[in-house]
Amino acid sequence: MTATILLFQITLPLALLGWIFFLPSGSAMGLALQIAGVGAFLFALARVAQWALPVWWLPWVYGALWLVGAVMLVAFRPGLAGLSVWPSGWGWLSAALGGALLAAGLWFGAQALSGRSSPPVEVVEIGTPFARGQFLVASGGSHPIVNAHMRTLDESVARFRPWRGQSYAVDFFGLGPWGLRAQGWRPAEPEAYAIFGAPLVAPCAGTVVAAEGDRPDFDVPQEDPVNRLGNHIILRCGTAEIVLAHMRQGSVAVRPGDRVQQGQPLGQVGNSGASTEPHLHIHAQQPAEAGAPLISGEPLGLRIDGRILVRGDRIGGADG
Results as ranks from 00 to 15, higher is better:
residue 59 P to D: 12
residue 59 P to F: 15
residue 61 V to M: 10
residue 65 L to R: 13
residue 66 W to Y: 12
residue 67 L to C: 15
residue 68 V to A: 15
residue 71 V to L: 15
residue 72 M to W: 09
residue 73 L to H: 08
residue 74 V to A: 09
residue 75 A to Y: 07
residue 77 R to Y: 03
residue 78 P to G: 07
residue 78 P to C: 06
residue 78 P to L: 09
residue 81 A to N: 10
residue 83 L to Y: 05
residue 83 L to P: 05
residue 84 S to Y: 01
residue 84 S to V: 07
residue 85 V to N: 02
residue 86 W to S: 14
residue 88 S to G: 12
residue 89 G to I: 08
residue 90 W to L: 11
residue 92 W to G: 03
residue 93 L to D: 09
residue 94 S to N: 13
residue 94 S to A: 15
residue 97 L to Q: 00
residue 97 L to A: 08
residue 98 G to K: 09
residue 98 G to Y: 12
residue 98 G to Q: 12
residue 99 G to E: 10
residue 100 A to G: 10
residue 100 A to V: 00
residue 100 A to R: 00
residue 101 L to H: 08
residue 102 L to H: 10
residue 102 L to W: 09
residue 103 A to S: 14
residue 104 A to L: 15
residue 105 G to S: 06
residue 105 G to D: 04
residue 106 L to Q: 02
residue 108 F to G: 12
residue 111 Q to W: 14
residue 112 A to G: 11
residue 113 L to I: 08
residue 114 S to C: 06
residue 114 S to H: 10
residue 114 S to W: 09
residue 118 S to L: 12
residue 120 P to T: 03
residue 122 E to T: 14
residue 122 E to S: 13
residue 122 E to W: 08
residue 123 V to I: 11
residue 123 V to M: 11
residue 127 G to N: 14
residue 129 P to Y: 04
residue 129 P to L: 08
residue 129 P to Q: 06
residue 132 R to Q: 15
residue 133 G to I: 02
residue 134 Q to F: 06
residue 135 F to M: 09
residue 140 G to F: 07
residue 142 S to R: 03
residue 142 S to W: 05
residue 143 H to C: 06
residue 143 H to M: 11
residue 143 H to S: 15
residue 144 P to I: 01
residue 145 I to L: 15
residue 145 I to K: 05
residue 145 I to T: 07
residue 145 I to W: 09
residue 146 V to I: 14
residue 147 N to G: 01
residue 148 A to F: 05
residue 148 A to Y: 09
residue 149 H to L: 10
residue 150 M to H: 04
residue 151 R to S: 01
residue 153 L to A: 03
residue 154 D to E: 14
residue 154 D to Q: 05
residue 154 D to W: 07
residue 154 D to H: 08
residue 157 V to W: 04
residue 158 A to Q: 10
residue 159 R to M: 01
residue 161 R to K: 14
residue 162 P to K: 01
residue 165 G to K: 01
residue 165 G to E: 00
residue 167 S to C: 04
residue 168 Y to Q: 00
residue 170 V to L: 10
residue 170 V to H: 12
residue 170 V to F: 13
residue 171 D to L: 03
residue 171 D to V: 01
residue 171 D to I: 00
residue 172 F to H: 00
residue 173 F to P: 03
residue 174 G to T: 01
residue 176 G to E: 06
residue 178 W to E: 05
residue 179 G to E: 05
residue 180 L to N: 12
residue 180 L to E: 11
residue 181 R to Q: 13
residue 181 R to G: 08
residue 182 A to R: 04
residue 185 W to K: 01
residue 185 W to P: 02
residue 186 R to K: 01
residue 186 R to V: 01
residue 188 A to T: 02
residue 194 A to P: 09
residue 194 A to M: 04
residue 195 I to H: 00
residue 196 F to T: 05
residue 197 G to L: 08
residue 197 G to T: 04
residue 198 A to Y: 04
residue 199 P to R: 08
residue 199 P to A: 07
residue 201 V to L: 13
residue 202 A to H: 11
residue 203 P to A: 09
residue 205 A to M: 02
residue 205 A to L: 01
residue 206 G to S: 06
residue 206 G to W: 07
